[in-house]
Write a protein that binds this DNA or RNA. Sequence first.
DNA 1: CAGGATCCCTAAGGATACTG
DNA 2: CAGTATCCTTAGGGATCCTG
Lengths: 163, 163
Amino acid sequence: MRLHAPLDDRTAWSPVGHCPIEKAIAVVGSRPAMLIMREAHYGTRRFDDFVTRVGVAPATASTHLRALTDAGLLERQPYQDEGARTRDEYALSPAGADLMPVVIGLFSWGMKHTDGVDDLEFAHVGCAEPVDLRVACAAGHEVGEQDVEVRLRRGRPRRRVRA
Amino acid sequence: MRLHAPLDDRTAWSPVGHCPIEKAIAVVGSRPAMLIMREAHYGTRRFDDFVTRVGVAPATASTHLRALTDAGLLERQPYQDEGARTRDEYALSPAGADLMPVVIGLFSWGMKHTDGVDDLEFAHVGCAEPVDLRVACAAGHEVGEQDVEVRLRRGRPRRRVRA
DNA sequence: CAGGATCCCTAAGGATACTG
DNA sequence: CAGTATCCTTAGGGATCCTG
């Protein structure tokens, strides 16, 4: 990976404060937040399940579930078990689902580069073949670390998403 | 995303403690660590550049550069400017380069779902087309959040990487 | 320039207990 | 079950100063 001119002039340009990675980290950069998102991707929706399966204190779960909901990654949805009052569960929003590549990326990296007892993998439900991430350009070329550069976006500025 | 049987029995199975994502987070889960890895991908190699461009205190940079080196994501390489003594710089190791999908994933998510002034994108050096992540199976099918499941790996256990 | 050592300080998270 | 409230503890990180 490299930086395209004029970004490669690092005396003039620094990502500090205006980097999308920093902003993403501000939302899902903590351990509880990321693990809650993992669980949400695994289909977990209820408070107590998050507490148990993530392994955090209720207060921590509460804080982060709220923050992730406020940030738009989770959506509160009412449900009602028979004989019980209505409660809320936390479902993945579209923005939360968009985090899937990051979840898979961390998972794959951990499987490959850390030691452990895990023998897990992702699979395509349709054809049962293993699933992996690919980094590719719009022309379809698969690219490695050496073949990518960061550049200023051309043309019209991207559409702003209203909060 | 879903969990394949028997993993979907969450009373019997929990990822707590043996999840590759947890282990990945233990290494790059902090803000400074992830931003240092971002910088390493951008080509930054020298201590002071990390301090400046990540925006952390020297002590913090020192701590995390050491931890990332110990974890095998960075490699210390001696260099010598003319008239100065030899010093070390920190280069991306293969394991560090393997983190590229995560870096790109966080970047893309941040660009799409957070507000900001940034107009950056990744491009393929070869053909200048924009680069993005794709989630695909071995058969080549591109898959979305609904089409992925986590299952126990079949066949021979994966090769262990010696430390 | 490339760090190590110290101090300090705050925010994050665990434990526990309680409520609707 | 789904939280909230309170307390407590610690690790992370900033600031500052110092060294090779």
